[in-house]
């Protein structure tokens, strides 16, 4: 049952990633920062709270966070954890992954529009804009990996990156990894795309979309955001950490360490970079797409 390691790890450790990122940012800024487990306390606290709904909201507003969380949790069934396969793998599972990510986003966007508030409309508008560009980029990156390994199912792709394949395709791997890093930042609304900590509505994307959610639904949103961070992150780390020893413990430990390093790296990026102007973000995503396109052409022949 080693297949279930990946979703279980994700369910347990995903909020920890957020904790590490926040701690890193605090340390760089010279503060002590919240405890690493603070995101867990936050989720638990919101679960206990009551709810305030906007006057014009309908059932869609209540359903949105639930669908978002469910689609991301279901996606865990097909996301491999490095060489450790996912519980389910089948040709074309990466299409299902993209579909589930899109479903979660669509639900969040509609819930935001249900408030009738112009702030949330603004956030939703930006979200769909960047997502429309990020989706083909994700497919470019996945297509490159598929071509390298000759398979189009996530688990065989990631298990296919043995040391020899990895070294042989190193340039492409580096380029795709850079694409995936950018996608991780874009899809999870981190700096330099979006600032998850600011509360100035005009500059936010994700935070402003979920501004009017509260109580258990806010808990779902926070937890789902951590899962999304985990899913895209494990695609990246699985590519960069080329341990395919077959040893369960070694690979698992390497991947967990890799995820921690990724979280620290995101924290470092957030501490050292400024948010881009919104108008620059599409160019940022286009750059990511270019990297993967170049990688695809390199390994084409």
């Amino acid at each position: 049952m080693s297949g279930f390691v990946s979703p279980v790890c994700a369910l347990i450790f995903a909020p920890l990633l957020v904790g590490i990122i926040n701690r890193t940012k605090a340390v760089v800024a010279g503060r002590r920062g919240p405890p690493l487990v603070q995101p867990y306390w936050d989720v638990a606290k919101y679960l206990q709270r009551g709810v305030v709904y906007g006057e014009v909201t309908s059932w869609l507003f209540r359903l949105g966070p639930v669908v978002n969380l469910a689609s991301l949790a279901a996606a865990l069934l097909i996301v491999p954890f490095g060489g450790l396969g996912a519980p389910l793998n089948f040709s074309g599972d990466l299409i299902v992954l993209a579909g589930l990510l899109a479903l979660g986003r669509f639900a969040t966007v509609l819930a935001a529009l249900d408030t009738g508030s112009s702030f949330e409309g603004m956030g939703a508008s930006r979200e769909v804009h960047f997502a429309a560009l990020a989706e083909p980029t994700l497919f470019l990156a996945l297509a490159t990996l598929a071509r390298v390994t000759g398979s189009f199912s996530l688990t065989p792709i990631y298990q296919g990156f043995t040391a020899t394949v990895w070294v042989h395709a190193l340039p492409a791997v580096v380029l795709v990894a850079m694409t995936l890093l950018i996608l991780e930042l874009v899809e999870n609304n981190r700096i330099p795309v979006d600032d998850p900590t600011t509360h100035l509505e005009l500059t936010m994307i994700h935070e402003v979309m979920v501004l009017d959610h509260s109580g258990p639904e806010l808990a779902f949103i926070h937890y789902a955001a951590a899962l999304r961070l985990w899913i895209l992150g494990s695609l990246l780390v699985g590519l960069v950490v080329p341990f395919r020893s077959g040893s369960f413990w070694l690979e698992g430990t390497a991947m967990l360490l890799g995820m921690a390093v990724l979280a620290v790296a995101i924290g470092a990026i957030e501490s050292t970079m400024a948010r881009y102007q919104l108008i620059r973000v599409p160019q940022f995503i286009l750059g990511a797409a270019t990297l993967s396109a170049v990688a695809f052409i390199i390994i084409l022949v």
């Binding site: 709270r49 009551g50 305030v52 006057e55 639930v66 279901a74 589930l100 408030t115 702030f119």
Partner: peptide, 28 residues
């Protein structure tokens, strides 16, 4: 599985909200 998870999350939410205060207000 996704639908099942959604249903159970919805159930969690309903149980929580049965115990907590639910009110409506103007959005920010």
């Amino acid at each position: 599985v996704c639908i099942v998870i959604a249903a159970s999350v919805w159930a969690v939410r309903s149980r929580r909200l049965a115990l907590a205060a639910v009110r409506t207000a103007q959005v920010w």
